[in-house]
Nucleic acid binder design. Structure first.
Length: 584
RNA sequence: GCACCCGUAGCUCAGUUGGAUAGAGCGCUGCCCUCCGAAGGCAGAGGCCAUAGGUUCGAAUCCUAUCGGGUGCACCA
């Protein structure tokens, strides 16, 4: 039950029933919103309806507000309505409405808050997509977490979500990988390979790959010609790297449904060729020349006719080349074919979670999606800004020298999966983020991860305690479903219920804005409301959840505590963070 | 040179899609444990929302310009 959307609908019904427009014209009510007021003293709900309608109706906002208020007062769920400020309509609800919300949470548990926004919409979310040439670098951690959480958020808003990873297994970097692995293979056979030459990957992670090659093929690879050898080593190394990458992602609880190989689109009669032929027929691909880049000309600039994609018709700065001077496809050609493939699979939205260094690709990706789908599909790009690493306040230096870079695995193994995930989501994705190894593992209120998880654990601590102390309670939610929730009259209790009532709205708006960080901030607020109320029980023992005078009151409060635990757990689920029942 | 992102308390950041007196955490000051987890809570001080214009009933939010920080810029992946 989302009280904001239900009462927004009721306001609209009131407006329509009053025929405010003199000429009976249709009113545009799309801008009418229902929000929690900034100050809780104003009431439970506030709407801007009167101010939004002032202009089209050519009436004073406060006059409209009074009319709408009159209509709302007839609603049995409404306790009082005030018109305030420039024309806000503040609504105070009858207590039974909040009892209903709480009862709804108790019944639905973690399903409370699910939104129907995305019903019937097929969404593809692509994230991570790092090159399969080594372990995942720490720089990709944020995109991995944001992409994964965004996908979960959309799924919770009932979108039909596919989580996808593009394996860039076609380019020149795969040759480098194979050559590097070959070197390690020779090393495994007992050769002294000395320093790793410039231009090859020096990392230790290729040592086991070399050994595995030696075990499987003996020394037979050495006598082959380059082409034959590469044909064996390339897929072998890519598989090994992807195995490592998948293990890294699993460690961070990042999931994908589809791992899509770029290589499968190349070659004669492949997806790229087919896509380009088809797009040429639609005049989206043509042969032409590009204007030279403005400013400084690159040394090797060559003015030649090439195969171009008409991305400018959809807002890109220039049309983009599809074929390199050596006749092979550009990376962008693969992007085009890949987008065509996704669209052919029926996706309505293509979402890309990218690093900030890929900001330059946003326009062309959007252009590709728009051009190929004829404007029917949405392309949405979310950029993740850089993460700066700190250790106890000191910046962590990363040198690019051999093997001396920090990997995703390093970070997760040092601080744990939950702190990494939560902190990566505790910022707007396009804002810079400072990540301090020390701070994120601190078990104190300064650490939001801990603070929220502690809130969940505290709830379960109460439920455990109650199950021990009370004969009639066995700790299950079923026993709380008939609780007399109207007994929860304390302001702290009501504040908690009101906060939980916002959860469906948070899910809805976060999904719409593609901003999973809103969930993290909401959880912090909810945990804060819980901790605050808890402390009040210190000063006023009669507010404690377990009340020795009234089992009815105790039961209602246990229902409240249970509900809070469910909403926190539900939010943490979306973020992919564990909800522990006790802290250790 | 061009494009995109960012500029909010001393620090790190939110800000409900244009709404009411701009909010948290840290740090600072002063309080609260015979108590279901003090691993917590309460209160106080702290602001020209980078700057200057504009749009309107109303702007931190939208538009333009300027300043400052970041990222990227034919055929790389």
């Amino acid at each position: 039950m989302n009280i904001f959307s239900t009462f927004a609908e009721r306001v609209k019904t009131v407006i329509e029933s009053q025929n405010l427009a003199a000429d009976g014209a249709e009113l545009d009510l799309s801008r009418v919103t229902m929000e929690p007021p900034r100050d809780a003293a104003h009431g439970d709900l506030a709407t801007n309806a009167a101010m939004v309608l002032a202009k089209p109706l050519r009436m004073k906002p406060r006059d409209i507000a009074e009319k709408i208020a009159k209509g709302l007062r007839a609603d049995a769920d409404v306790a009082s309505v005030d018109v305030a400020g420039p024309g806000f309509i503040n609504i105070r609800l009858q207590p039974h409405v909040f009892s209903q919300v709480l009862a709804d949470v108790v019944v639905k548990g973690k399903e409370f808050g699910r939104s129907q926004r995305g019903k019937g919409v097929k969404v593809n979310v692509e994230y991570v997509s790092t090159n399969p040439t080594g372990p995942i670098h720490v720089g990709h951690t944020r995109g991995a977490v944001v992409g994964d959480a965004l996908a979960s958020l959309l799924a919770f808003a009932s979108y039909d979500v596919t989580r996808e990873y593009l394996i860039n297994d076609a380019g020149a970097q795969i040759d480098v990988l194979a050559n590097s692995a070959y070197l390690r293979y020779r090393e495994a056979l007992g050769e002294d390979i000395g320093e790793i030459p410039e231009g090859l990957y020096p990392g230790d992670y290729l040592v086991p790959v070399g050994k595995a090659l030696a075990e499987k093929y003996g020394d037979t690879l050495k006598s082959m010609d380059d082409a034959a050898r590469l044909a064996i080593i390339k897929p072998f190394s890519v598989d090994a790297m992807m195995g490592m990458i998948r293990a890294d992602l699993e460690l961070l609880n990042v999931k994908h449904d589809v791992f899509f190989s770029e290589k499968t689109m190349h070659g004669k009669g492949g997806a790229i060729e087919k896509a380009l032929t088809e797009l040429r027929a639609r005049d989206l691909v043509y042969d032409g020349t590009l204007p030279p880049p403005k400013g400084e000309l690159p040394d090797d600039w060559e003015d030649r006719e090439q195969t171009l994609f008409r991305s400018t018709i959809a807002g890109d700065d220039i049309d983009r080349p599809l074929v390199k001077s050596d006749g092979s496809y550009t990376y962008f050609a693969a992007d085009v074919a890949y987008a065509a493939d996704k669209l052919a699979r029926g996706f309505d939205q293509l979402i890309f979670v990218l690093g900030a260094d890929h900001a330059g690709y946003v326009k062309r990706l959007e252009a590709v999606g728009k051009a190929i789908s004829g404007g029917k599909a949405d392309v949405i790009c979310r950029l993740c800004q850089l993460v700066k690493l700190f250790r106890a306040g000191e910046p962590v230096k990363m040198s690019k020298r051999a093997g001396n870079f920090i990997t995703l695995r390093d970070v997760v193994e040092e601080v744990g999966r939950d702190p990494v995930r939560f902190m990566m989501l505790y910022r707007k994705n396009d804002a810079h983020l400072d990540f301090d190894f020390q701070k994120v593992t601190e078990q104190s209120k300064d650490n939001p991860v801990f603070y929220v998880q502690y809130g969940h654990a505290r709830c379960h601590s109460v439920l455990r305690q109650a199950a021990e102390e009370l004969e009639w309670f066995d700790g299950t939610a079923q026993q709380l479903q008939n609780a007399k929730l109207e007994l929860l009259e304390d302001e702290g209790e009501q504040a908690l219920i009101a906060k939980m009532a916002q959860w469906p709205r948070v899910v809805d708006s976060a999904a719409e804005a593609h901003e999973p960080h809103r969930v993290a901030f909401y959880l912090y607020e909810l945990a804060s409301a819980l901790h605050g109320h808890w402390a009040r029980g210190k000063e006023k023992p009669q507010l404690r959840f377990i009340n020795d005078k009234s089992s009815d009151l105790t039961k209602a409060r246990l229902a409240l505590v249970y509900a809070v635990s469910q909403v926190i757990a539900s939010g943490l689920d979306v973020l992919g963070v564990e909800a522990p029942r006790e802290m250790r």
